[in-house]
């Protein structure tokens, strides 16, 4: 991030890309490196610790979901992760290929979670950490709930067909820091 970039942002540029990753897969070292870079970048802005943790938390769950649940396909840039600075908020955009049999339930789940108020989503989160087992990929299935919760419901999605077996799930998550 150069001084020029920051100047452009301060002069009311709407979107400033902070971090971008595009490839046809992602490994855990890359996940870790992206998160380290993100924390360093966020340190340059006047964002309080709690909001920084919220942004980091959503980015972590988003990247871990991509790492653990993506289908590998031979398509350039089929996996993408981007963090943008907007006026008073951070936007996290991701895209990754998912088996078509799994993508509809995920979309329905996001719609359901978006419809919950703050208290309901908190109660659901607590219920899940108390009751739910760990998946064979090591996730507790809590990531999506946590992402929607931290973003206070500001999460949108769309799907893009890649082939008859796989579609891309494109997420846009907005985390306010005012």
């Amino acid at each position: 991030m150069s001084i020029l970039d920051i100047d452009i942002y301060q002069n009311k540029m709407t979107i400033l890309p902070l971090l971008t990753y595009r490839n046809n897969n992602i490994d855990y070292n890359t996940v870790s490196n992206l998160l380290t870079q993100l924390w360093t970048i966020l340190d340059k802005y006047d964002i309080n610790v709690s909001n920084k943790k919220k942004i980091y938390s959503v980015a972590t769950e988003c990247l871990e979901n991509i790492y653990k649940h993506s289908e590998f396909i031979e398509k350039e840039d089929s996996v993408s992760f981007q963090v943008n600075l907007l006026n008073n908020s951070i936007e996290i955009k991701s895209s990754n290929p998912i088996n078509i049999n799994k993508i509809l339930p995920i979309c329905e789940r996001i719609e359901f979670l978006k419809g919950l108020n703050n208290n309901s989503i908190k109660q659901l989160y607590l219920h899940k950490i108390k009751k739910r087992g760990i998946s064979n990929k090591g996730g507790a299935g809590l990531g999506l709930i946590l992402m929607v919760r931290k973003a206070e419901g500001k999460i949108d999605f769309r799907t893009e067909t890649i082939n008859k077996f796989v579609s891309s799930l494109v997420l846009t998550i907005n985390i306010s820091f005012t």
Binding site: K53, I134, G138
Partner: peptide, 12 residues
């Protein structure tokens, strides 16, 4: 300092 969602389950 930080823990992810799957760690929260384990801590609990």
């Amino acid at each position: 300092e930080y823990f992810n969602s799957s760690s929260s389950k384990q801590i609990l």
